[in-house]
């Protein structure tokens, strides 16, 4: 069991600090909620958040102590490591995927659905070299058009 904790000790150490911070913020916000004395103090809307943020705090502290026990605090971030991580293929792919998702969300409702969806699909297929660019374009436009048509006319759900 301890071996498992060793593998994830460093991320666990950082996560535990985040969890402790988050639970303290929730606890603080919960304590500031109104008390509604006429209902009885026990019926206050803050009672469950107080209980569960305290439990989260406890779990955060256990995770923190556990990660410290296996030297999770010994985090050394070198420049080489950072450069290697940032220039790695999975990181590029993740950033591109997330970027396209956010662009899609931002333009949703501002540009016609078929246009923005076709653009999103094309960008993905083009970036990942899925197929020839003109094939990607055809697939994107046809798919976006089909989805729009199906929702608007078959499922009777208007799209933005």
């Amino acid at each position: 069991m301890k071996e498992n904790h060793k593998e994830t000790a460093k991320p666990d150490f950082l996560t535990s600090i985040f969890l402790i911070g988050l639970s303290l913020v929730i606890l603080g916000l919960s304590l500031a909620m109104p008390k509604y004395v006429e209902w009885g103090m026990y019926a206050t809307p803050s009672i469950a958040p107080i209980i569960f943020s305290s439990l989260l705090l406890m779990c955060g502290i256990i995770l923190f102590i556990r990660s410290i026990a296996v030297r999770g605090y010994a985090i050394r971030i070198t420049r080489e490591q950072t450069v290697r991580f940032i220039t790695s293929k999975p990181f590029y792919n993740f950033s591109a995927t997330l970027g396209f998702v956010l662009l899609y969300y931002v333009l949703m409702g501002r540009v016609h659905f078929v246009l923005i969806s076709a653009l999103y699909l094309f960008l993905n297929m083009f970036y990942f070299h899925s197929t020839a660019w003109w094939k990607s374009l055809i697939i994107s436009v046809v798919t976006a058009g089909l989805i729009w048509y199906s929702f608007n006319y078959l499922f009777l759900i208007p799209l933005p």
């Binding site: 899609y104 969300y105 949703m108 990942f128 070299h129 697939i139 989805i147």
Partner: peptide, 24 residues
């Protein structure tokens, strides 16, 4: 290919999520 399928699935997810209540 996953790189063709997954973006199409995401478009369906976007549409599906929006369709329930019509809220961005």
């Amino acid at each position: 290919k996953k790189s063709i399928l997954m973006p199409i699935v995401f478009v369906l997810c976007m549409v599906g999520t929006y369709a329930i209540a019509g809220r961005l």
